[in-house]
Design a protein around this nucleic acid. Sequence first.
DNA 1: CCTACCGATCGGTAGG
DNA 2: CCTACCGATCGGTAGG
Lengths: 209, 209
Amino acid sequence: MKGERTRQSILERAVDIASLEGLEGLTIGRLAKELQMSKSGLFAHFGSKEDLQLAAIESARVRFVDEVLRPALGAPRGYPRLMAICRAWLNYVGRGVFPGGCFFAAASFEFDGRPGAVRDAIASAMDQWVIALEKAVRLAKEEGHLDPRTDPAQIAFELNALFFGANFASQLRNDPSAIRRAEKAIEQRLESLRVKRSRTRPHVRRKTA
Amino acid sequence: MKGERTRQSILERAVDIASLEGLEGLTIGRLAKELQMSKSGLFAHFGSKEDLQLAAIESARVRFVDEVLRPALGAPRGYPRLMAICRAWLNYVGRGVFPGGCFFAAASFEFDGRPGAVRDAIASAMDQWVIALEKAVRLAKEEGHLDPRTDPAQIAFELNALFFGANFASQLRNDPSAIRRAEKAIEQRLESLRVKRSRTRPHVRRKTA
DNA sequence: CCTACCGATCGGTAGG
DNA sequence: CCTACCGATCGGTAGG
């Protein structure tokens, strides 16, 4: 369908603009002009500005999963996969997957003070991401690569915070050492939890409930 | 002067709105309506919207210093003062110093993709803050409270990242454990650098240049 | 001449 | 996907 191709090209541009200027700064008129379309022609693909924002969030989520998370999930389960996810994230900002840095960091801080469906969609996407991080930590623990006392939710919180810190320093401050600093902090934090010698039975336990 | 009082009350409201809806979401008409003033009456205090935004940033900076940084600087130099700053920051989000969480976190992520004077002012305010954090770490090192190999810029980066992570989790995800998680991460990180026994000469060195 | 506003309106653009 | 529009609101300024 040509309509679907047009819709996808609209959303790709919308996501790029929103990563730079925010989901509210994304206006129909501006988007139409950049795409050399009429406002109403563009708008025929979406019922409202809110629908466009929601579709852009979903489009950004798919791009993030395809470009960052999925490739990293190819690494061996446990510590290597966890580090692969972290390195993939740090790479993703500098690589320009979104031109304005992390779309979701920008969207999270833009909408955390507003109610509504857009905020809920951003919160849901971030929940999925943090849960994916927790899972990677939990698997590393279950593989016997991390200290059994490791709290996956705590470590996921800390990793996510360091990602935000890297995005901030590299986007606002243009600090070329931002990525290295975050990488160093992550390596040191995970190393502090690492179990060096391999256990006889790496799978310590399975969920009982 | 009555004019100055009016200007200050405009800026206080402007800062509160901007912490919730962003510095671009802050509109003259809305601000005037909330203050029960005419737009033009309000506008007489500022030359342009950009001037209003710049004045709001400065007002927010003064509020932050008065409410967060200055009180913490009363703590004894070194490790106690560093921890006081960190605890003051974590307290500041939940205490509602700004109704939408940290004004500067929101502003940083809003403007990191735009050029101009507003972005520059936000970047400058954040530089001052990160430099204050670095100084607190450096003083703790010089007092002999932290490992002499401690890199103040690295630790300031990590602390700031954890603050952003706490703001994110508490504002967007309404996670009641956000502050505790950040506090735990900070305590553990600083504890890992702490020198427990007091030295004979706590002031290890002064800058030679 | 000043300040601190007012009601009304400027040229443009928003979402629809 | 278009032209042709709407009610409203945008940042900003007129005269009084």
